[in-house]
Amino acid sequence: MSSRVQTNLQKVLAAGHFAVTAEVGPPQGPNPEPVRAKAAILKGLADAYNVTDNQTAVVRMSSIAAAKILLDEGLEPVMQMTCRDRNRIAMQSDLLGASALGLKNVLALSGDHQKASGAGKLNGHPGAKNVYDVDSIQLLGIIKGLRDEARQQGGDAITEPAPFFIGAAWTPLGPPVEFRVPRLAKKIAAGADFVQTQAVFDLKAFAAQVKKAHEAGLTEKVAILAGIIVPRSAGMLTYMNKNVPGIEVPEALIARMKGAKDAKAEGMKVTVELIQAVRELPGVKGVHLQAIEAEELLAEVIPAAGLTPRPLV
């Protein structure tokens, strides 16, 4: 990890604290207030907050703008950047702009395909042309080049290094499972300082993959934050298990949620248990929490898991 970058998230990890990140989805509109409202709910609960980049390929306020609004509210953002909508020229330009605005955590993703945008209730833009000039691993390398060499991908110098703390996503249980640890190694080699994983429900399978990464020495080189989605119902778990690639939900967990009298309370309990369980795994340095448009749940579950107050570093 680069010592030049000093984001709060990096400092928390460097100090050996169990880190907490949470996710903030920007609104489908030009008004900053919904971002500020989420900020008010989430402030003080996490060390940094991911701002998604047109997730599910649906047009939303740009991650760069929403991240800046969070920053102004006193929350440290992790600006997500996908490879779907921008070529290497636009990406690097936006990265320099993000850095100028004080956005220092950036997370590189492939991005949801534009065909996904018409899959739900929205029209989306399934007829859009995607870019994929570079992939997420190549983007990591580009960000690292801006930071460590003060150089653009094409070789030209930039005026000074752009100090980023570089993040990536990891889907440990996605097929082909035997390539997921090597792919994590590629992300580290390309530049990742931290990774946030796809949501964990199958602890045994997740632990097995983390163990492999740990044994390969990868957990010394990268901070793994285990992804946790707060389950709200058995139906939600069944849906994710069936439809979201890389998410494995054990039948027993679905049955437990189904049998619960108060699904919301049970979901919170499950979340706390998951957090405590991943915390025990060697190599897991934190959690990345998502409540998907129900941020108020995080305000309950993060303290319930004993993760507040967040360390001041």
């Binding site: 492939s110 065909k115 996605g174 097929p175 082909p176 090597p182």
Partner: peptide
């Protein structure tokens, strides 16, 4: 679907198909 050059994205289905189309193989798989 994303012309990825370094391996599969997180969208490979359990059966090795692409998240974009259930009838298309994930080529990285």
């Amino acid at each position: 679907a994303k012309s990825l050059m370094n391996g599969p994205c997180g969208g490979t289905r359990k059966n090795g198909r692409c998240e974009v189309d259930e009838n298309t193989d994930c080529i990285w798989y």
